[in-house]
Design a protein around this nucleic acid. Structure first.
Length: 494
RNA sequence: GUCCCUAUCGUCUAGCCCGGCCUAGGACAUCGCCCUUUCACGGCGGUAACGCGGGUUCGAAUCCCGCUGGGGACGCCA
């Protein structure tokens, strides 16, 4: 396959949705698999729904998740298109501009061509008139859509108007979709859709066709919901005398109830996942698996972006929609966390610890990270596990310490003994700490388990913690001894 | 109402195009056991699916038809 070029064309109306992440991923996988380019195009033709700063956040989100486009809007373009731009987010490319509002004149020119060649016409029907038509059609249980009233009226270009495409009657259409296979329409359901709005901006239909042609897009990968408008797009390519790209309609990402994934199902914005402590690598891997699979003989499910790029194929894209499982994503996030270099994990953990109000000390963090690594699914899971390292005062779960026959006086004695033997240690490392604790257990005639529980709660305050000896090592000798003595005093008053 | 897409364990899916190797494989979740100083990780094992009805065929998850279920589209939104 030659000159593969794909595009991701979000509209700057808000934050990047997780479903959009999958589309963007597939665009990139497809292009890069074949040595081509993936472009980012900003579809800002709906002037009413524009959200200031949205272009910037879209690009930042894509960058954070590890999706890097080869061409896209430059800083200058973003500055022109977005009332709240941030320099440094631009991408740039040889076919600028990549923002549709900056190409507005091009769409007007194409729509004029279409009128001239008889494929389109001006229409000045009022919204009220259209509304009325729709109501009547609904009442008659007919297909709703524009009647074609202005088709032969030769509406003047001077007055406010829209430009509509003339849908040919009874014209069968066949789409050779790269994932759905051959899709046929005996007749087209759409009724003379608007190409150019009265504000002279194009609708999606016109803009996407013109741009996919102008940017030499070879493969259009887009969500399933676009399938029903594909005949229109095919007709437009034909009317314009342009070769249509290959279409590939991607199966939808669904919520647990089988409906399109939305806020009701939980977090859907990519930024929410970032804030919840998901790793970009895990998100990408997981999203790839909704709608795509490696195929027969492959039982592994963990794929880096590079693996995915090497293996991706439209043929292996599924037809049916898939439910987004937060549970499985979490598991996969844990897999990726476990695969991180401890220093890397520490760096990713840091902001979450700080956000939780902890006074993070990097040496302690570095000591404990390898031991919490297999215990994390989400980054913030670390907070309750290691907050004892970064607080001066801790709350102690005394009821859990004094369980299963462990009496307060005995616990107090154990705390004292451990404090003494830790204090006496010359080399303070996990091996010597372990030896010391085991010795205390032996001398006090109590099994290791109960002794460790006493120590654990005395030092960390909790019954669920990282491994004890490593925790003590990370905390440090001074603080550990201090906490044991504090606990002994606490127990004296019990 | 019209049109289009779709249908394998609770979930993601392999297998389907090229019928027999499928007593339907893997993963998440779940249950049990092992490991173990807590909690995890890890290991082992279990429960669990071809939507229904007709064909075609010696033989169908795989091919054909119908039904049903689910989703989407029918905007001067994308």
């Amino acid at each position: 396959m030659k000159d593969v070029r794909t595009r991701f064309a979000p509209s700057p109306t808000g934050l990047l949705h997780i479903g959009g992440v999958r589309t963007a991923l597939f665009e990139i996988l497809m292009a890069h698999r074949h040595g081509g380019q993936a472009l980012l195009r900003i579809d800002d033709t709906d002037r009413e729904r524009l959200v200031p700063g949205a272009i910037k956040s879209l690009i930042e989100d894509l960058r954070w998740v590890g999706l890097h486009f080869d061409e896209g809007p430059s800083d200058e373009e973003i500055a022109k298109a977005d009332s709240a731009p941030t320099p440094g987010t631009g991408i740039g490319g040889p076919m600028a501009p990549y923002v549709q509002s900056l190409r507005a004149a091009r769409y007007v020119a194409v729509s004029e061509d279409l009128i001239r060649t008889g494929f389109a016409y001006r229409c000045d029907c009022t919204p009220e008139r259209l509304q009325q038509e729709r109501e009547e059609q609904t009442a008659r249980k007919e297909m709703v859509g524009y009647s074609g009233y202005c088709r032969e009226r030769n509406v003047s270009a001077a007055a406010p108007h829209v430009v509509r495409f003339k849908i040919p009657a009874n014209r069968p259409i066949v789409l050779a979709d790269a994932v759905k296979g051959e899709v046929r329409w005996e007749k087209i359901i759409l009724r003379d859709p608007v190409l150019l709005k009265s504000d002279k901006f194009p609708t999606y239909h016109l803009a996407t066709v013109v741009d996919d042609h102008d940017f030499r897009i070879s493969h259009v990968l887009r969500a399933d919901e676009w399938l029903s408008t594909a005949p229109l797009h095919l007709l437009l390519f034909e009317a314009l005398g342009w070769e249509a790209p290959v279409f590939a309609h991607l199966p939808p990402v669904l919520g647990t109830d089988g409906k399109k994934l939305s806020k009701r199902h939980g977090a859907t914005f990519l930024s929410s996942f970032r804030e919840a402590g998901y790793l970009p690598e895990a998100i990408l891997n997981f999203m790839a698996l909704i709608g795509w699979s490696a195929g027969e003989g492959e039982e592994n499910e963990i794929f880096s972006l590079q693996d995915l790029t090497r293996r991706f194929s439209l043929e292996r894209v599924n037809n049916a929609g898939g439910v987004f499982s937060y549970e499985k994503l979490k598991w996969m996030n844990g897999v990726y966390i476990r695969g991180l270099q401890p220093s890397d994990l520490a760096a990713r953990l840091r902001p979450f610890l700080v956000a939780a109000g902890l006074d993070v000390q990097d040496e302690k963090l570095a000591r404990i990270v390898p031991h919490i690594q297999p215990r994390l699914e989400l980054l913030p899971d670390a907070v309750p596990l290691i907050d004892f390292l970064f607080r001066d005062a801790i709350e102690r779960d005394m009821p859990s310490m004094l369980k299963k026959g462990m009496e307060a006086p005995k616990a107090r004695e154990i705390c004292g003994q451990i404090a003494n033997s830790l204090a006496a240690l010359e080399t303070f490392d996990t091996a010597s700490i372990e030896a010391a604790l085991r010795r205390v257990a032996e001398e006090s005639g109590v099994a290791g388990g109960p002794v460790f529980t006493v120590a654990r709660i005395a030092i960390t305050g909790k019954k669920v913690t990282p491994p004890l000896f490593e925790s003590i090592f990370a905390l440090g000798k001074g603080q550990s001894v201090l906490r044991l003595r504090e606990t002994a005093e606490l127990l004296a008053t019990q």
